[in-house]
Design a protein around this nucleic acid. Sequence first.
DNA 1: AAGATTGCCAACCGCGGCGTC
DNA 2: CGACGCCGCGGTTGGCAATCT
Length: 292
Amino acid sequence: MGRAPCCDKANVKKGPWSPEEDAKLKDFIEKYGTGGNWIALPQKAGLKRCGKSCRLRWLNYLRPNIKHGEFTEEEDRAICSLYATIGSRWSIIASQLPGRTDNDIKNYWNTKLKKKLLGSTPNLNKRNHNQQQLQYHQLHQQQLHFPPLQLPQLSRAFDQFNSLATSTLLQSPSYFHYEAKPSLEDGNMIMFGSEKSCTSSDNMASLESYLYNSGTGLTQNLNIVKEGGGYGMSWGDQAPLEYNYEEIKQLVNCNYTMCNTPSNSATPTSSCIIQDDPVDGLKPQGKLMYQF
DNA sequence: AAGATTGCCAACCGCGGCGTC
DNA sequence: CGACGCCGCGGTTGGCAATCT
């Protein structure tokens, strides 16, 4: 049996809100608040709308201090760096941008910012867009001799680093590094992986189990070796390429500071940055330095 | 000039999390 | 401790406007 519907779908209005409905909702909430119950609110406010629809309308449009219109360069940078760090968690990203809603940011990212990062402009037709994208990548590959990098894998990697940084598994000062480098065998693939040393076998077992259960997709090719009194571990995968090294470096390094500052401290306990790490004086490797 | 395509964004939908009973 | 109901999130859709062919 499926989930019961949240409202009587036959008796609720759908689609765009009229100014009258907006006024009713706004007046009601300003007078009485939401009462902590969106489902009951439309009936009390005299609206033939689903509670969820009311909530969305209020949060995305009617509530005070909502910012509409163009995003600033500063907001662009913040969205980029947060997306690179935590992925598509729009509500968290929105919480860092006063006046902006998660829906707004999601739409902005999907329709404009993503394309901006790819070096193309909005309102291009498909043929021009594809041509420009191709030229863009060709130019970058000629200049850098480095294939483009795929963003989703990086986002997952960052997710994993973030949760590890704040997990109780890593009590003592610890050091991680994350490497993104072109595969020597296949220029169209990127290798990504991490290494971790640990002096306690118990700790390592917990970490291993954590990684297996974290669902980040980064535990392929997990390799654990005994090193002296402790253990060393590395894991990684390879992925097809979409973005180039410079784009990713800019994304990550731009304004990036880890947000795991403890409540009793003014300074963050960790940070990350991608540094150039030339190999044999030829290709740069993206090395994400992660210290906490 | 008109039909087709693309961009944009408000709104919808389904699902997972969480609190309550 | 499981069922239930609500909330909030992120992905998707629909429809209008702009642009292209």
